Simulated assay, not measured.
Amino acid sequence: MTTVKTEYQQQLRALAELMLAVSGESVTMMKRNAPEQALKLKRQDEWGIYLEFLKIMFNLTDRLSALHIPIKDQMEFMNNLEDAVTAQLKSVLEPAFGANSDQMEIVLTVGGAVAESRQLYEKYKFLITEDSKTKNDMFRDFGERVAELLGARGNAQLSSAATLCASAIVPAISAVLQGQAPAPVSAPAAVVSAGEGAEKKGPTGQEIKLVSLMSSVSGEEVETRWGLHPRFRKDLTPSELQQLTKLLNRVAKILGERYAAVAFSDQWASWHKAGHA
């Protein structure tokens, strides 16, 4: 008889990697939206924002798992997801702590995040696949918490950015639970995708990424490139394409310089291993 852990091993690992990657990139996205506040943040402050994203992702996964995992297995599935996230986080942070260090603090931290996730979000009763006032209230309250952690309480723009980062991961989590391999999700791309698809009324998971922007490192070289969806490019007039090209070249330059600055710093060495830089 197979256990839930072995039966869903692939999905558990994929979900853990997805949740950690998007949480880390979301922190970077929030700092980019609040440069003045970002300069004042300490490591523990960034860690608190990271955990805030992790909390809501545990809740979103719990809600989505109810649609794809048998009821009798769901509780064990979520317990195993907590273990998978803990194991993945240990692996990511190992270079910073050392292989022989006591990593029990990570276990307690993830366990605490799960407990706080339940306390904060289980009171919101709604179906994750449908739009509702309660669902919007939960995401709004989450966004306000992130803005407050950034030292910008009441900043609607930051709250909205945090909400977009969190809500854009829903299709990817759903795909993993269905046994599919989700397309790579990053916070900046997620915000673009969610923003472009905000007025669409189609079913969840039908968003189209119109603009992509990515930085990668190879040895001591950093490459930053952007791209457009072929259909989107075709729909633009020559003047619009010229303006967009000019804008995205500027964005790519800023992103590339920032990525290079953090990618080769000692402070971000362990995060860069997981793609968080």
Rank of each mutant, 00 (worst) to 15 (best):
Q9L: 04
E46M: 10
S117C: 10
A66S: 14
E221H: 05
S101K: 07
E7W: 07
S160Q: 15
L247Y: 06
L39S: 12
R231A: 15
R258N: 14
M138N: 00
A168M: 08
A190Y: 07
S159R: 02
L18F: 04
A194T: 11
D137K: 13
E116Q: 12
L210S: 08
T28P: 01
K135C: 04
A194E: 15
I56C: 01
V170A: 13
A190P: 09
P184V: 06
V211K: 02
Q206A: 11
K234W: 15
S160F: 08
A166R: 04
V146Y: 07
Q243K: 14
G143Y: 05
D45H: 08
F58L: 09
S160G: 10
E36K: 13
L255N: 09
R118C: 05
S117Y: 08
I56L: 10
A168P: 03
R153D: 06
A34E: 13
Q243H: 10
I106V: 11
Q9W: 05
S159M: 02
L244M: 09
D73L: 01
L15F: 02
P188C: 07
K123Q: 14
E105W: 12
L41A: 14
V85P: 00
F58C: 04
A183H: 08
L210A: 12
H68V: 09
S159G: 15
V27R: 06
L39A: 15
A34Q: 10
N33A: 11
S270T: 05
M104F: 08
A87C: 08
N155T: 07
P188E: 02
E76T: 11
E7I: 04
I173H: 00
M75F: 03
K135D: 01
M19P: 00
K55Q: 14
P35L: 11
A175V: 10
T134Q: 08
I106W: 10
T129K: 01
L213Y: 01
Y8Q: 05
S132K: 08
F97D: 03
D73R: 12
D62C: 03
F232E: 05
